[in-house]
Amino acid sequence: MAETHDATAGDSWRERLRASGHRLTAQRELVLQAVDTLGHATPDEVLAEVRKSTSAVSLSTVYRTLDLLEELGLVRHAHLHDRAPTYHSTTSPPHAHTVCRRCGRVRELSQPRTAELVATFREGEGFEVDVAHLTVFGTCLDCEAPAG
């Protein structure tokens, strides 16, 4: 069962934070909630979401908090663009991403497809893929469709 970060659904993320010797702060909770809400978000996008609740959080606080949350296994990051990393919650299983270079659409590669890819690399190449950081760039079929 996937762990949830929703404050109303359980306290396991709070326990993990405290067990690691870190305090539970309103800013940390807001950053984690923003990542959960947005799905995939850069630190700037997380800040914009947090600022809907408070202006008392800076971009450096967001970066430090995201680093801490990643260290604790509560969020992961991937490089989906040529800009800042994109963070997503660990409530979903590890997954790869596809990014269309034309329209910018980001899609999560389905779990069965990810498993096939991992197996192909493991068996064919003797290589273990870190799917949480895997991003495949290309062109989606919608953008490839002929104009007409």
Rank of each mutant, 00 (worst) to 15 (best):
S20A: 15
S20I: 04
G21C: 02
G21H: 05
G21M: 10
H22Q: 02
H22T: 00
H22N: 00
H22F: 15
T25D: 06
T25I: 03
A26T: 08
A26H: 14
Q27C: 09
R28E: 08
R28Y: 01
E29W: 00
L30S: 08
L30K: 04
L30W: 00
V31Q: 01
V31N: 00
V31I: 13
V31K: 04
V31P: 05
V31G: 03
L32N: 03
L32T: 08
L32Y: 00
L32M: 02
L32F: 04
L32P: 07
Q33D: 13
Q33A: 14
A34M: 07
A34F: 00
A34E: 03
A34N: 03
V35D: 01
V35Y: 02
D36I: 08
T37A: 11
T37R: 07
T37L: 08
L38K: 13
L38G: 00
G39I: 03
G39T: 10
H40V: 09
H40P: 05
A41Q: 00
T42R: 07
T42Q: 09
T42Y: 01
P43I: 01
D44P: 08
E45P: 12
E45D: 12
E45H: 07
V46F: 07
V46Q: 06
V46T: 07
L47R: 03
L47F: 06
A48E: 10
A48M: 13
E49A: 11
E49L: 10
E49S: 13
E49C: 15
V50E: 03
R51L: 00
R51A: 09
R51T: 06
R51P: 01
R51M: 02
K52D: 03
K52Q: 12
K52V: 06
K52I: 05
K52H: 15
S53M: 11
S53A: 15
S53E: 10
T54R: 10
T54M: 12
S55A: 15
S55N: 13
S55R: 03
A56I: 01
A56E: 15
A56Q: 12
V57P: 01
V57G: 01
V57T: 06
V57C: 11
S58N: 14
S58D: 15
S58K: 04
L59F: 03
L59S: 07
L59Y: 04
L59N: 09
S60C: 05
S60W: 12
S60V: 11
S60Q: 13
S60N: 13
S60I: 12
T61S: 14
T61D: 13
Y63L: 12
Y63H: 11
R64E: 10
R64C: 11
R64P: 11
T65M: 02
T65C: 06
T65Q: 03
L66Q: 03
L66W: 00
D67F: 13
D67H: 14
L68T: 11
L69G: 05
L69M: 08
L69Y: 01
E70T: 11
E70S: 10
E71C: 06
